[in-house]
Nucleic acid binder design. Structure first.
Lengths: 193, 193
DNA sequence: GGTTTACACTAGCGCTTGCTTGGTTGATCT
DNA sequence: AGATCAACCAAGCAAGCGCTAGTGTAAACC
């Protein structure tokens, strides 16, 4: 078995699985469907993944890892101002949601289908990401850019952003950049004439 | 079969089903589990519901109907000011999410498991609810209470609110009233010293 | 040149699934 | 007293499920 190995083949299979999980849901996606999508027979699938659960974990890990990397990078590249950092996080978040959409939808909807071990491992990744947000929110609060309860504000913001996967249309006129700008404008009372 | 009938027994069964659907997810909840929770055998279940899908539809319809009723009532009872109406909607939304939690979690997570017919019927209910929100947001925009794009603001607000089911702890120190207040404060730039 | 390794195949086991069938019960109504 | 009817049960069917066992094969390695 190829369990630890992060072969390119496995990555490709993970990407295809994400697509099916979004379309059908994890439980409704059978190993035979997965195999067919991958162009192999169902038995061969277990050469790459120990079991079906592991495919789900791989999908979610991939997406979360990318989000974390992208957010860190965005924070390093942007200005030091609290507003710029807030903006950078929002933009990075929405860009990931766009480019890595399938993986993130799976992460949001099928999290509970993970077994205890995988959930434990992945929740650390997710927590690291959420801590980035709380840090940036803290800075914005300290700078007087926004006001309110640290915990509540960060939850509200992440809720507003994550919810976009339910309605955002990549083909539409609005770009991720626009959404990020609008969101920051909505929660910062500064921009008044 | 008791399909059209809205017997009290059926309502009680729907409530129990909602609980199981939240705990296990729709696909993982078997008709045998449902029957056991209801204290009957699996075959008897199909006396009350045509099939498993119909139980899901009943759960979601119940929750959405309640939310709509509560929101309309809240809007009738509150002050005419844009801020009061915004506040009333947020409070009503969060209260429903608290008292009818199971049904709403199911509506949010398992919507895609509905078949085409049920989804069509229920989306009208949901749209009616979302229109209430857009109306109140429009009023707040017109009153200069908030600023920005009508569509985006309402999506962001509903996202922030709906996301609460993922983290809100009814046993914790924060009341739905507090959340509503904090959210309105976050998006209205008025409350500055 | 022989052995190992990666990847795929065929075949099917044991179990669970949603749902059906045919029949029983006890209360209600006429 | 007989008929009706909602509510339930026991038994099981056909289909589909995740996963395993054993095998084949071409490339990579020593």
């Amino acid at each position: 078995m190829n369990v630890v190995n992060e072969s390119p083949r496995r990555k490709e299979l993970t990407r295809l699985a994400a697509h099916l999980f979004v379309q059908e849901g994890f439980d409704r996606t059978t190993v035979r469907m997965l195999a067919q999508e991958m162009g192999i027979k169902s038995g061969s699938l277990f050469h790459h993944f120990r079991d079906k659960q592991e495919i789900l974990a791989a999908v979610i890990e991939e997406g979360t890892q990318n989000a974390l990397t992208l957010a860190r990078q965005a924070l390093e590249e942007c200005d030091d101002s609290a507003e710029a950092r807030l903006h950078a996080m929002a933009r990075a978040h929405l860009q990931t949601l766009l480019t890595d959409r399938n993986a993130h939808v799976v992460a949001l909807y099928e999290w509970r289908r993970l077994d205890a071990a995988a959930r434990d491992h992945l929740s650390h990744l997710r927590d690291a990401y959420e801590e980035l947000w709380e840090q940036v929110i803290d800075e914005a609060l300290a700078a007087g850019l926004i006001h309110g309860d640290r915990f509540l504000v960060s939850r509200f913001v992440m809720g507003a952003l994550n919810w976009t996967v339910r309605w955002y249309d990549p083909e539409g006129p609005r770009k991720p950049e626009d959404l990020a700008h609008e969101l920051v404008a909505m929660i910062t009372p500064s921009a008044r004439p």
